[in-house]
Design a protein around this nucleic acid. Structure first.
Lengths: 345, 345
DNA sequence: GTGAAAGCGCTAACAG
DNA sequence: CTGTTAGCGCTTTCAC
């Protein structure tokens, strides 16, 4: 077990004091009038022996951990993991690490994680906020931490936000169904008060209102296991034979819905049109390819990190930003209204 | 800005010393003969004011950070993010956090991350090792850190390992193609010396050898952008008209391959059979559904964490484990050998 | 039974 | 220009 080098070792080897090393390493040689010669000597030696300061000691001493805490709903969800990836990469290039936590949309878990982050002295928080976390987040903001909320808005919470235009994304998707001559358009969504789901529902309602069609919304509880979810959708569709198209508010629900449609012996597109909010699952390779509302994952990640890093690096408290990114609707074959020709790729 | 409570505050409020608090909080009240009464009083007060020790200070003082560093190839890859999720969950229940890093299979990035982990004083390492990291990992092991390698073996590296049976997984998949009467079976894989890819290739070669068929392997460079990758596969297929089936060694390659097949105006199953190693992408919903070798993601995650936690919690250095998990072959319609009927779900 | 004090590895006043 | 020193918040030895 090779003993890890510490600053004291370096100081002894080089016959200088710890602080001199520290100054040099933190680029403060100049303001402390350390000779270029000594500086180079130190730099060279440190490089040679591969010394790296213990982040944990630096953290204790400075109060800064150079890490960002990121709270997502589920890191195994492609939507979140893609964003996480973008954040990780850009943060790293500014010397920040990211620690993640999956909330499963649960208040208690989320708050536990946020407390854990806090005990780890994270410098900033990137949060897809589960319900019930408003107050804790507000505290974080009040205590002066940079907080960037994304994916879902929390009305009344004052901090930086990177959101997408759920209302118009949904509106556009449902209008597309209307354009394609579907007459009985249902929506399958989560049983949730979360802002982004409500906005998607509002978009749906608006589109149907505008065209005078009947509205039917089926809400599925959040933590239902997959098979139950499929069953609920199947029952819903079976009970409402008139439905000729469905707007799914999430990717996950759509996967369950497609399964349900299969179980009913129906075929997507030929028997029922479908369109999905969120395009992260190879929908273009499905049979038929599924029309979807694509969220700008990369942009979300970049914006989030950009705001976070700028807060972290400047201490001038700029006004909070609220960025709303546009979605991108992609029409594919799942929303053709007439019987579809054999479509095997 | 509400000042965070520290142990000193508690001590002052309660008129006892810091160490007493510390003992109680760490369940060492008994061995230090602290009265139950005092203990309860402290516990109650701590609970009431919501005091939580600074992990970073605890870390500095104990040398333990209660965090595990996890190195994956790409956290946005469903295979890795699913495993990460499992690890996160089980680690958390034992009080460990996980910090991730994506290596992009790059030696330098991987080592940088590992060093960063080390500076963060992580207590253990879970690693999907990129090429060229053997020595660094070996150092970690030599320095007494628990290290669990997964997904790919590094022959000659002595540490805990959780692997899957790539050879037999591939063998089975290709034998399936042979059974289905395909005669010109190609393999598309990564240009890589990594053990798991070689094993998959060996499985392919064995299956073809056993049945006396001609072997053709196309290797694609790792970091090619998607469109180039598609192009290379397209050219390969176009140049070898006789090919009637393809075994893709990764999920990602298969997605490119399906695109390439489309571009050539061919149809999967009808014109060309395909089977894929790794089943993480809703292949059952594709058109036609794609036959695949499923990796036991959940088991991998659980095994990895179990080994890690047992190392972390016991100091008796048990012998290294090498666990090899079986894959699960799923035959779907992409490997029917005769022309397929119209298949729209 | 309890508390003072040293120390984990680093930073940053401050003194010289 | 450089070094001494006092913390950061906690753990743990050892003396009372």
């Amino acid at each position: 077990m090779m003993k890890k080098l510490v600053i004291k070792d370096i100081a002894e080897q080089l016959q200088v004091s710890k602080s001199t090393i520290s100054f040099v390493l933190n680029g403060k040689a100049r303001q402390h009038g350390i000779s270029i010669k000594l500086e180079n000597k130190i730099l060279k030696y440190v490089e040679k022996v591969g010394y790296q300061p213990s982040r944990i000691a630096v953290g204790l001493s400075t109060g800064k951990s150079k890490t960002i805490g990121m709270l997502v709903e589920d890191i195994s969800d492609p939507f979140f993991s893609s964003i996480a990836r973008v954040v990780e990469r850009s943060a790293l290039s500014s010397g920040y690490r990211v620690i993640y936590g999956s909330t499963e949309n649960d208040t208690v878990q989320a708050i536990d994680l946020l407390q854990a982050f806090r005990n780890h002295n994270v410098d900033g928080y990137i949060i897809a906020p589960p319900p019930g976390t408003e107050n804790y987040i507000r505290e974080l903001v009040a205590d002066g931490f940079p907080v960037v909320v994304f994916d879902r808005d929390v009305p009344g919470l004052d901090c930086d936000k990177v959101l997408i235009d759920n209302f118009n994304g949904a509106l556009q998707a449902v209008e597309h169904l209307v354009d394609r001559q579907f007459k009985n358009i249902a929506m399958v969504t989560l049983l949730s008060k979360q802002n982004q789901m409500e906005e998607r529902a509002n978009g749906y309602l608006k589109a149907l209102n505008d065209s005078g069609l009947v509205q039917r919304i089926k809400q599925i509880p959040y933590d239902l296991e997959k098979s139950k979810c499929v069953e609920q959708i199947r029952r819903f569709l079976a009970g409402q034979k008139a439905i000729d198209a469905v707007f799914f508010s999430t990717n996950y629900l759509a996967l369950g819905g497609i399964e349900a449609i299969r179980q009913l012996g129906l075929q997507v597109a030929r028997d029922i049109g479908i369109v999905v909010f969120d395009d992260n699952t190879n929908f273009e390779l499905f049979s038929p390819p599924i029309s979807a509302v694509a969220q700008p994952v990369k942009q979300i990640g970049e914006q989030v990190t950009e705001i976070m890093l700028s807060r972290l690096q400047s201490n001038t408290p700029a006004a909070f930003q609220r960025i709303v990114l546009k979605t991108n609707f992609i029409a594919r074959e799942s929303t053709l209204s007439q019987p579809l020709k054999a479509n095997v790729f």
